[in-house]
């Protein structure tokens, strides 16, 4: 049985399971909503003249980073609970296939959550401002950011799976390692939402850097995954 077939089987299992239990999506969704509520309080004392648009890129990414951690923590916990991970490891399957399928499902779930929360963010906070006409370009930084988060996050959540205090530990490793990616994505997102003079240079260069981060860190995670999952 080829790589692609196994990849499909693993991915379909994750999707079916999530569709059945809605465990990750619902917890991530509710958490994201709560972060938005906190944003509401945090921004309540700012003056009307505050240029919310300049901050919105950063606020969106703060929301995504914290929400994704919640999902990543869950993504392997259920594999471990009934020993299912061992069941998968006992099958004649390449370990990197497990990484790729898990990263894909994590990325898909994250994108679904973004699909709901980003418009919700706009609804709550961007009602009074006019977005630059280039705002639909926000899709690409969101996509590249989610891919990187899912890839590195999958490796890290496998590492923290069997540690004491795994929720905190994931955050401790995840946030600094993802920092460069978030930095680039914030620049690209803000760039296309504000759309000031010559924003395209910033936007494209940030996207290129985010893409470079994704390629390097994903290849590295993919290469190191065998060691991690077999340990």
């Amino acid at each position: 049985m080829g790589f692609f077939e196994q990849y499909r089987v693993l991915l379909r299992k994750d999707l079916t399971r999530e569709f059945r239990s809605k465990e990750m999506l619902s917890s991530m969704g509710i958490y994201a909503l709560l972060v938005l509520v906190v944003y509401g309080a945090a921004l309540s004392q700012t003056s009307k003249g505050l240029d919310i648009l300049q901050m919105s890129g950063g606020l969106i990414w703060a929301l995504i980073v914290f929400t994704s951690m919640l999902g990543l923590n869950r993504s392997f916990a259920f594999e471990k609970e009934q020993g299912c991970l061992e069941g998968i490891l006992l099958a004649p399957i390449d370990r990197s296939t497990i990484f790729l399928s898990k990263a894909t499902s994590n990325c898909l779930f994250l994108l679904v959550v973004e699909l709901i929360t980003v418009p919700l963010f706009a609804f709550f906070f961007l009602g009074g401002v006019t977005l630059a006409p280039s705002w639909p370009l926000i899709v690409f930084p969101l996509l590249l950011g989610s891919i990187g988060i899912a890839g590195v996050g999958t490796l890290l959540s496998t590492i923290t799976l069997e540690t004491r205090g795994k929720d905190v530990l994931l955050a401790v490793l995840f946030v600094p390692l993802l920092f460069p990616l978030v930095y680039a994505c914030v620049a690209a997102t803000t760039g296309c939402m504000v759309g000031s003079e010559g924003f395209m240079t910033t936007y494209l260069r940030s996207l290129l850097l985010a893409g470079g981060y994704d390629i390097i860190m994903l290849s590295l995670s993919w290469a190191l995954y065998d060691f991690v999952i077999s340990a």
């Binding site: 600094p176 390692l177 460069p180 680039a184 910033t202 850097l209 981060y213 860190m217």
Partner: peptide, 17 residues
Amino acid sequence: IAFVDTPICFMITRLVP
């Protein structure tokens, strides 16, 4: 990972205008 991530971090924070 730390060893690879550090130069990337420097590059990105430096090159993003």
